[in-house]
């Protein structure tokens, strides 16, 4: 809100706030401070980009499925469950 109590945010402090920034949980005053710092700092902008790229890469990791044998076993177990508990 008031500009007075807003101290400069250092790069070292900014990297510790990056998750709160990405999660959208920063208080408005901190958010303003952080965005002002980003405007003037190539290093921190690169850091933020790297963090976003890291998160995106994690989301693209290939998923592995259950093996057909395991799936088959489960379907057999399902039959047992159906007969047993469901009559």
């Amino acid at each position: 809100m008031t500009q007075g109590r807003i101290a400069q945010l250092s790069c070292q402090e900014l990297v510790e706030l990056i998750t709160e920034y990405l999660e959208g949980t920063l208080a408005p005053a901190d958010l303003a401070r952080l965005e002002r710092h980003l405007d003037g700092c190539d290093g921190c902008r690169a850091y933020l980009d790297q963090m976003r790229e890291t998160i995106a890469a994690l989301g693209r990791l290939p998923a592995e499925s259950l093996s057909p044998q395991a799936e088959e076993k489960l379907l057999v177990a399902f039959e047992g469950w159906r007969k047993g508990s469901r009559g």
């Binding site: 790069c11 070292q12 700092c41 290093g43 921190c44 690169a46 980009d49 790297q50 790229e53 693209r60």
Partner: peptide
């Protein structure tokens, strides 16, 4: 104090390289 001494650099074509 607290400013980057060795700042991170942009990754070239990150999507390809990260895949």
């Amino acid at each position: 104090p607290g400013a980057w001494a060795r700042p991170p650099v942009d990754w070239d074509s990150p999507v390809e390289r990260l895949s």
